[in-house]
Structure formats: C-alpha cells, structure tokens
Measured scan of single mutants.
Amino acid sequence: AVSDRLIGRKSVVMEAISPQNSGLVKVDGETWRATSGTVLDVGEEVSVKAIEGVKLVVEKLE
C-alpha cells in the first residue's frame, strides 16, 4: 500500500503534537495528521512509526 512506504520515513512537525491532540507533519512534501505519545514542537524531526486509519503515529528522532 502507498501508506506502507511512509513507515520509517523522516518527517518534520508542522503543527505541534501532544498525547491529547493530534498535529500535522510533512512527509515527502505531503502533509499528514499525526499523533504521538509525547509532546512534539513545530520544526522537530520525527520518524513515522505506524499508521492508524488516516493518521500517522510518529516519535522524535534520537
């Protein structure tokens, strides 16, 4: 599936994300709604860990 190619990809937070609120990330020039178990600020680099419905699950790059 097209979405499977996103797992493991680097992306950049475009709208802040917290455990309570989804935000936005940009992956390969496309904007996606995303969630995370931690707070992520605009501009942080993250990695796509999973896809749940139409949202990406991301975490901060170490």
Rank of each mutant, 00 (worst) to 15 (best):
K26M: 15
K49V: 15
T38C: 13
Q20D: 11
V39M: 11
D4K: 13
K60F: 05
S36W: 00
G37W: 11
G29K: 06
G43M: 04
L61F: 11
G23M: 00
E30N: 07
P19D: 04
V57F: 08
V54T: 14
R5F: 08
T35W: 02
E15M: 09
V13W: 00
E15H: 06
S3V: 12
E45H: 11
V39A: 12
P19A: 07
V27M: 08
E44V: 10
V25R: 00
V54F: 13
I17P: 02
I7R: 05
G53W: 00
D41G: 12
I51E: 02
V2P: 15
E30S: 06
L24M: 10
M14H: 07
L24T: 11
R9T: 06
V2F: 11
K60D: 04
G29N: 10
S22V: 13
P19R: 05
L61V: 11
L40T: 03
D41S: 12
V2A: 13
K10L: 14
L6P: 03
S3I: 13
V25M: 01
D41A: 13
E52P: 02
T31H: 11
W32C: 10
K49F: 05
E45A: 09
V58W: 00
A34M: 00
V42Y: 05
G37V: 11
L24H: 06
A50S: 10
K60W: 05
A34Q: 05
K26I: 14
R33M: 15
G23L: 00
N21D: 08
G23W: 03
G53E: 06
P19W: 00
A16N: 06
S11F: 07
S47G: 07
S18M: 06
S47R: 15
A1F: 12
L61N: 07
V25W: 00
V2H: 12
T31F: 14
L61A: 09
L56A: 04
S47I: 15
V27T: 04
E59Q: 08
E62D: 12
S36H: 01
A16F: 08
I17G: 02
E52F: 10
V48G: 01
E45P: 07
I51M: 08
S36R: 00
A1N: 13
L6W: 04
K60L: 08
L61Q: 08
T31A: 08
V13P: 00
V48A: 00
T35K: 07
V48P: 01
R5Y: 09
S3Q: 11
V2Y: 10
R33N: 11
D4A: 13
L6A: 03
L24R: 09
G53V: 03
I51T: 05
L40S: 02
A34C: 08
V42I: 10
A50N: 07
D4Y: 03
V46A: 15
V57N: 04
A1S: 13
R33H: 14
V27S: 04
D28V: 03
K60T: 06
N21C: 15
V12Y: 07
T31M: 14
E15A: 10
A50F: 07
P19T: 05
R5G: 09
A50R: 10
E52H: 11
E30M: 08
I7V: 10
M14C: 10
L24S: 10
A1Y: 11
K26C: 15
V54L: 14
E52I: 13
G53L: 03
E59F: 00
K60V: 06
M14D: 04
V54C: 15
V13Y: 02
A16I: 09
V57P: 03
P19M: 05
L61S: 09
K10I: 14
E59K: 03
S18W: 07
E62Q: 12
V27F: 06
L56T: 03
L6D: 04
S11L: 10
V13G: 02
E15F: 03
N21E: 10
E62K: 11
R33V: 15
A1W: 11
D28Y: 04
S22A: 13
E59N: 04
S18V: 06
D28S: 05
S22E: 15
E62I: 12
E52K: 09
V48C: 01
K55P: 00
A34T: 05
L24N: 04
A16V: 09
V42H: 03
G23A: 01
G53H: 05
M14G: 02
S36D: 04
V25E: 02
M14P: 02
L40W: 05
L40M: 10
K60I: 06
I51S: 04
S22T: 13
I17H: 01
S47C: 15
N21T: 11
R9Y: 04
L40V: 07
E15Y: 03
S22M: 12
V48W: 00
L24Y: 11
D41H: 13
I17R: 00
K10C: 14
K60S: 08
I17W: 00
A50Y: 07
L24G: 03
V48T: 03
V2N: 13
I51D: 03
T31Q: 10
K10G: 05
L40H: 12
V46Y: 00
R5I: 08
E44H: 05
E30C: 13
G8I: 01
R5H: 11
P19S: 06
V25C: 06
K26S: 13
L6Y: 05
M14T: 11
V25P: 01
E44C: 09
V42S: 04
L6V: 06
A34P: 08
P19Q: 05
V25I: 08
K49N: 06
G23T: 01
V39C: 14
D28M: 09
N21A: 12
V25K: 01
W32Y: 15
E45W: 15
M14R: 04
K49R: 11
K10D: 06
G37S: 15
L24C: 08
L61Y: 11
D41V: 11
K55F: 15
K49M: 12
E30F: 08
G37T: 14
E52N: 11
S18G: 10
V58P: 03
V12P: 02
K55Q: 14
V13T: 02
V57K: 04
R5E: 08
K10Y: 08
G8E: 04
S11N: 03
T35E: 09
V48R: 01
A1P: 12
V46G: 04
R5C: 12
G29H: 06
T31P: 06
V48F: 00
E59L: 00
K26E: 13
E30G: 05
S36A: 12
S11D: 02
L56F: 00
K49Q: 08
V46E: 01
K60Y: 06
V58T: 02
V54Q: 14
Q20I: 10
E45V: 15
Q20C: 14
L24P: 01
T35M: 09
E59M: 06
A50G: 11
E30I: 09
E59T: 08
G53C: 04
